[in-house]
């Protein structure tokens, strides 16, 4: 144990904290997908991690499509135009995957009144199917006779291997906070996370459709009697979760730059944890949980060594749930007041 590593100097403390906040922002955006679906359906959508993973591939594909495969290092400003296109592409692909999940893995089960546990198994199955399909994308291309055309996108024979964006985005230091240099990439990630979070919160609390979401979350049957189309509400919930996952994927690729067919798994577990920590079903809880988890991981790494960071983060989760069983903010989507 080395508390000096963390608290020995303000520089160190701020560096560990900032690094954690940036990653926590990504957790928070993925956590939104879990929390929205849970709020409306009381169901954990375990396939949401794959929705995110497909988004990360969409980002890399968009860069390959618009730039090519030549490995280059660009500043954030130079990469910005393609990054915006990649954001759109990732949000569209992630949203499409989320809608397909809703259509084929959930709706038939919910229609038939299947127990929640069955839908959970269906989600886990869909998660494996999606991840493996990405790992076998070279075979699909082969079957379709498109191997030559899509070579750069499917990585024949290496589809399960790590897949990198040819454009490396070089962060530029903007200003210092107590010795820690905040880079433009860090700033964009944090700002994007807060802006999206506020926009979504406003949408749910202030708009007519948001009221529908809250109504279905509170009481689906009564909501239906009041004229809310609950099927549509469920669809839109999945759509929003997918859009946010696509945005998270873009921010993640901006910072990390590479992905693989199983990249969603660990991040999905972390994001789900963040959602539970903040209070599942609660949008602001997802933000609080994500940021807290990211920071705790880095603090845990600093004090105990990196191999202990998950232990620290999950012990913290257990402690929080012991004191506040419904999470830090604890309130469900349905109870949010307009």
């Amino acid at each position: 144990m080395d508390f000096g590593a963390l608290f020995g100097s303000l520089d160190n403390f701020l560096s560990f904290t900032m690094g954690g906040l940036v990653f926590g922002a990504v957790y928070a955006l993925i956590a939104l997908g879990y929390t929205m679906v849970y709020g409306v359906l009381q169901l954990i959508n375990f396939a949401h991690s794959e929705v995110f993973m497909y988004g990360t591939f969409a980002v890399a594909w968009m860069f390959i499509f618009l730039h090519g495969t030549e490995s280059v290092t660009w500043s954030l400003g130079k990469a910005a135009p393609i990054l915006v296109a990649a954001l759109v592409g990732a949000m569209l692909l992630s949203a499409a995957i989320a809608l397909l999940l809703e259509r084929f893995a959930y709706r038939p089960l919910i229609r038939k009144g299947a127990p929640k546990l069955i839908a959970l198994i269906s989600a886990i199955g869909a998660s494996f199917a999606l991840a493996e399909a990405m790992g076998l994308r070279d075979r699909f291309a082969d079957k379709l006779g498109l191997s030559d055309n899509l070579e750069n996108y499917v990585a024949p024979g290496k589809a399960r291997d790590v897949f990198s964006n040819p454009v490396t985005i070089q962060p530029k230091g903007l200003f210092e906070v107590g010795g820690y240099t905040v880079s433009d990439v860090d700033l964009v990630i944090l700002a994007a996370c807060f802006i999206m979070m506020i926009a979504l919160d406003t949408f749910v609390r202030r708009t007519r459709f948001g009221r529908g979401i809250r109504a279905v979350a509170q009481d689906p049957e009564t909501a239906a009697l009041m004229g809310v189309n609950s099927g549509r509400v469920v669809q839109v919930t999945f759509l929003i979760g997918g859009l946010m996952a696509g945005a998270a994927a873009t921010l993640y690729m901006m910072k990390i730059g590479s992905t693989r067919q199983n990249a969603g798994f660990i991040l999905g577990v972390k994001a789900f944890t963040a959602a539970v920590m903040g209070g599942i079903g609660n949008l602001r809880g997802a933000l609080v949980g994500g940021l807290l988890l990211g920071v705790m991981e880095n603090w845990g790494s600093a004090v105990f060594g990196s191999e202990w960071k998950d232990v620290v983060a999950f012990v913290l989760l257990v402690l929080i749930l012991l004191v506040r069983p419904s999470g830090i903010l604890g309130e469900s989507l349905g109870k949010a007041r307009a």
Binding site: A5, N12, S15, F16, G19, G20, V22, F23, Y252, I256, A263, L267, G294, E297, N298, S301, A302, S306, K309
Partner: peptide, 9 residues
């Protein structure tokens, strides 16, 4: 994927 703690150490 997040190596920021190692980098800082």
């Amino acid at each position: 994927t997040n190596m920021s703690a190692v980098v800082q150490a």
